[in-house]
Design a protein around this nucleic acid. Structure first.
Lengths: 191, 191
DNA sequence: TCTCGAATCTAGCGTTGCTAGCAAGGAGTC
DNA sequence: GACTCCTTGCTAGCAACGCTAGATTCGAGA
């Protein structure tokens, strides 16, 4: 009985080990450096062990992405709730979002560019961390845009934020005017 | 003398052959299916020939992307100039942009998600087709936002448009409310 | 007709994600 | 306490990838 529990615990630990190794490797050298061989070496197990935990490399990346969603949601919540008024609230949230994308580019990439494994915009299947993140955005916008079309407005604001970050990261936009662009966007949404 | 010219002409033809094959293959089966082996087979030459034309696979994708920028710029110009007034102009342009991203998802991916080879936002190095596309957006916005911060406003509008398209394409946003979100964005920018 | 250089191919390197099939070792049964 | 059996993890290898070195063919110019 207790043996089974120990095994399950060890298994969970090893799964965390894999996800952590993948994240660290990606943050240090980019996703291209995250190969199944290097991951296996890192966790000191053989390659096939990875496949007893995850369906494939994509699933490992999805697990890392999920971690990212949870962290982003926490950051957004903190930013939103610690601001004195609705305008500052939205500004702080956008700032937190931007900072997250800047300081964790590799994580952001896994969350929004790769990893199509995760389901979005479906109340049943969308991971809670993702729904929570969207919820933070929505609640920050509510006082400024009203309840009409709140979801759609949230989606548009999020898309704009996301567009700014991806285009800047891929040097499609100069890093220079970043803060200014963020301010313009906030202005358009009433903050 | 004339022999040299013929050779150069044949070489250009073959380069076009490569780019066309890459684009067709990508549009038919996605970028993952575009391998140097399949490309070589398609153009009925051996693999190394590809490398006498392009530095590598990335450069071939960049060439396809460049084609996409030219087509997108043309479409945007047509949309912008054929509308009766500034508001309709911006709406038509956004509509054209969205339709392009929807009907050429693979091309759009090469232009904005992959292919970091191209230089953006640099007057000297940025390809003309790209500058022209940005120019269309700017001129469509000018009557509505004024000349203050026109470039930055254009960048924000473009980022929002881009964000909407990428998030929708990766099913991060439901396909359902797409038109509605587009309308909301236009409304925020005065159209 | 011969020579030389350019153009093109064959063959192969190192790496990738992933898997089949074998060996070890502990859990449960008599 | 000995014996199955099943789980667990490993070794080895497959097919495919981007890319390149070196051999080979072929045609232009002397």
């Amino acid at each position: 009985m207790a043996i089974r529990e120990r095994r399950e615990r060890e298994r969970r630990d090893r799964e965390r080990l894999i996800v952590n190794a993948a994240r660290e490797l990606a943050e240090a050298e980019g996703w291209d450096a995250v190969t199944t061989r290097r991951l296996a070496e890192q966790i000191e197990y053989s390659q096939p062990v990875l496949y007893s935990h995850f369906k494939g490399k994509d699933a490992i990346m999805a697990a890392v992405a999920l971690e990212g969603f949870a962290e982003l949601a926490t950051l957004m919540r903190a930013a939103r709730t610690s601001a004195p008024d609705p305008r500052a609230s939205l500004a702080a949230l956008a700032e937190a979002y931007a900072r997250f994308a800047e300081t964790h580019p590799v994580l952001y990439e896994a969350m929004f560019t790769n990893a199509i494994e995760l389901t979005f915009a479906s109340p049943q299947e969308t991971p809670p961390a993702l729904q929570q993140g969207f919820g933070e955005l929505r609640e920050a916008l509510r006082p400024l845009t009203g309840d009409d079309d709140l979801d759609a407005n949230t989606e548009v604001f999020w898309a704009a934020l996301h567009g700014l970050m991806t285009l800047t990261r891929g040097s499609r936009l100069p890093a220079e005017g970043h803060q200014h662009r963020l301010a313009l966007l906030l202005h358009r949404f009433g903050a």
